[in-house]
Amino acid sequence: MDAQRLKDNFAHVAEQGDAVALFFYSDLFVRNPHLRDMFPVGMTGQRDKLLRALGRIVSQADDLPTLVPFLQQLGRDHRRFGIIAEHYPSVGASLIATLRHFSGSTWTDEIAEDWNAAYTLVAKVMLEAADEDALSRPAWWNGQVIGVERRRFDIAVLRVQPDRPLPYLAGQSVAVEVPARLRQWRYYSMANAPRPDHTVDFHVRLVDGGPVSSVLVRTMKTGDHLRMGAPIGVLTLDESSGRDMLLVAGSTGLAPLKAILEQVARRPIPPRVHLYFGARNRDGLYDLEDLTKLAHEHAWLTVVPAVSDESAGHGFSTLLQSGDGDVEYGNLPDVVARHGPWSAHDAYVCGPAEMVGRTVERLESLGVERARIRLETFADAQR
């Protein structure tokens, strides 16, 4: 298998954009009509995911230590959709047909052999990971909503009772599917550390055009059901570290960091923890009351809320008198930077991609080693 030849061919094919994924799925469903029900009704998002996954696989074709873990997770993820070994040859046939079609005159027997070898490897790794995963856990957990709090028009906090214990680490996420949006899975982080009763909390923000978030925020009620996939994610607590901690959360990026905070609280001697919670305006600090209560209960915890779009005039004075403690004004990375130094801390950052990126840059400029910064963005969570 010639990795560079694969990359060159895929670069040529990818120039056709969305037409590539459209052709692939059309070919797949014409050849295998029974597979159509395994996919969502609206395929736009699915086509985007296909191209992103193919692009990543091809770009790492000559870097197996990096590629294999990604393929293993893909294999485990595909269990939620009912994908089994018998489906892989059909997908492979449609993939080769698509690549041949868009390659035109550049298609050769050598390129065909490269793609067949690559797909054989991809399928093998994914299937082995799926089979191993099936030995220890189900493809999904059924959950019942036992509590709903609508904190504002676009943010809801849900408490869910799984039908069986859901083992996870504080900071991890699960894919969620609701009956009204079958086969449209979206990732949400648990907002609590594991509990004896196995319940989990989700902080859900309404995303413009988001098919799952719209249901969870606007229509979900106590007694409703949903499904949850297996936990994933590396935004987890480094239990081996004895350093103080910096947590930086933008909007509902607070969820995994609040779970980590709960985990820290269970230590016999917790480290000093500074939690910065940011939003555009005061109303966006949807969990500030609970965070303030936690800070009052734990002397090792400092909570600093921040807003970026409020004026520093009369509106800001009103914020300072809100009863929830001082609220800082400014973009979250700037607020965090002016409260340093943080070079002796472990940092955990989650939220909108731009905020996370800027925060990481500022922390590195302030002497925090990149290896001690764990992060996740909303885009990362949806992969």
Rank of each mutant, 00 (worst) to 15 (best):
Y25W: 12
D324F: 15
S136G: 14
E86W: 02
T236C: 11
D109P: 02
A259C: 13
Y348V: 07
I83N: 03
W342R: 05
F202P: 05
T106E: 11
L275S: 01
S103P: 01
I269V: 15
P341L: 08
D18I: 14
D77C: 00
V30E: 15
S317N: 13
R36V: 06
D163F: 04
L169W: 00
M190T: 08
E354K: 08
G92W: 06
F81S: 00
Y286G: 01
G210P: 11
W300L: 01
E128H: 08
R372E: 05
Y168A: 04
S90N: 11
P69C: 07
E86C: 01
L71P: 03
V273G: 01
Q321Y: 10
E86Y: 04
L261G: 09
T222A: 14
N142P: 00
E361A: 14
A134V: 02
V68W: 07
P333N: 13
R151T: 09
R36T: 10
G82Y: 12
P271I: 01
L135H: 13
L67T: 05
R372L: 08
K7F: 10
A249K: 04
D287I: 03
D201I: 04
N281Q: 15
H198Y: 10
L366I: 01
F202N: 04
F153M: 00
E376M: 03
R266K: 13
V207K: 09
M43Y: 11
S213C: 02
G278Q: 00
L332T: 11
V157P: 01
D283F: 09
Y187R: 09
L35G: 09
F29P: 05
Q4I: 07
G323Y: 02
V58F: 09
L291E: 05
G210W: 13
E328K: 12
R164I: 00
G92N: 06
D380S: 11
N116G: 15
A61G: 06
V336F: 06
F153L: 02
P167A: 10
R218V: 11
E297L: 12
S173P: 00
S189L: 05
P138G: 10
V304I: 10
S308Y: 09
L50C: 08
L35Q: 11
I83H: 04
Q144L: 04
V304W: 12
L127H: 00
K124E: 14
L50H: 10
H203T: 06
L257R: 09
R243L: 07
R186G: 04
P162I: 07
Q72E: 15
L67E: 05
E376A: 12
V360K: 14
G367N: 02
P194Y: 06
Q172V: 03
C350E: 04
G250N: 03
P271C: 05
L182W: 00
Q161A: 15
G42I: 00
T108L: 07
A118H: 08
V368K: 01
D346C: 06
F23E: 06
N32Y: 13
N9A: 10
G340D: 02
R338E: 13
A11E: 14
Q46F: 13
L301S: 07
H203V: 07
L22W: 00
A347D: 04
F153Q: 11
V264M: 02
V248L: 06
P89L: 08
R266Y: 01
L261P: 08
L51D: 07
V160F: 13
L226I: 09
S136I: 06
V234G: 13
R186H: 15
V248A: 09
Y187C: 12
D154K: 05
M228N: 02
S90V: 03
H12T: 12
P162F: 14
G104K: 03
